[in-house]
Amino acid sequence: MRRIATTLKAAAVAAVLATGVGAALAWAPSARAAEGHDVIQIPDTRFSFDGIFGTFDRASAQRGFQVYKEVCSACHAMHQLSYRHLTQIGLSPAQVQALSSQFQVQDGPNDNGEMFERPARPADRFRRPFANDAAARAANNGALPPDLSVMTKAREGGADYIHALLVGYEEPPPGVTIANGMHYNKYFPGHQIAMAAPLNTEGQVTFADGTKATVDQMAADISTFLTWAAEPELEQRRAMGVRMLIFLAILGGLAYAVKRKVWADAH
């Protein structure tokens, strides 16, 4: 009995410690959320990639790419991505080839020392909408449209936040004055955002697969696409993680059995 009591006591101490570490870690993100003083609740959106076994809905990611290409890419670069990466969301190499050749990119210098334009190849990075940050600011009322390559990892709330932001435009509540050229968004920290509602009318984009292009649908699709863009390894990573944990569980069982056998006469 005494033995069991001691074991339980030790287990309790370990549990208290583990809970302590866990709680402290869990607190850390909420500590960040509290920083903005005015805490904004980001609504939870259901995505295909939620959970341990979640994967990217390829159709949604492709629609999201279309939204990026036709809307976002007017201002936002995604310079970490190459056209060839799009095969990962289900485009065929021929489609990628055809797609990339629509864009003109600068290359050079040639033998005469001159820069020249040529159609993009699959290995090229996504074409940037502006030559440099100053040009981007000049065209956008002084605001710099951020690069979207890792956007879902760079914002608290990730894909949920992107989706909420894109559907969060509304008239400012009474008493709130919006600076010139700014827009009210209920999910943006501080509520004043320089970007005008980019997705504003149903049917703004025509999806080839017949999906109805509501603002909410387009916002969800671009969030899926951006999540893939930020974490292209996500599916491979989780699949490997599941295999790793199964392997470790078996190894752990064996190790524990051997340990008990070795220790059988030592207590």
């Binding site: 870690l25 850390a28 993100p29 341990i52 990892k153 990573r237 989780r238 490997m240 993680g241 599941v242 790793m244 944990l245 470790l248 569980a249 190894l251 752990g252 190790a255 524990y256 051997v258 340990k259 070795v262 220790w263």
Partner: peptide, 25 residues
């Protein structure tokens, strides 16, 4: 042998972080 048991448990915690919540911390 006793350390081996602990090492496997350690790797399981490590794996949960790396494979399922790599940016949580």
């Amino acid at each position: 042998m006793k350390d081996s048991v602990g090492i496997v448990v350690y790797f399981m915690v490590f794996a949960v972080l790396v494979f399922f919540m790599p940016n949580a911390l």
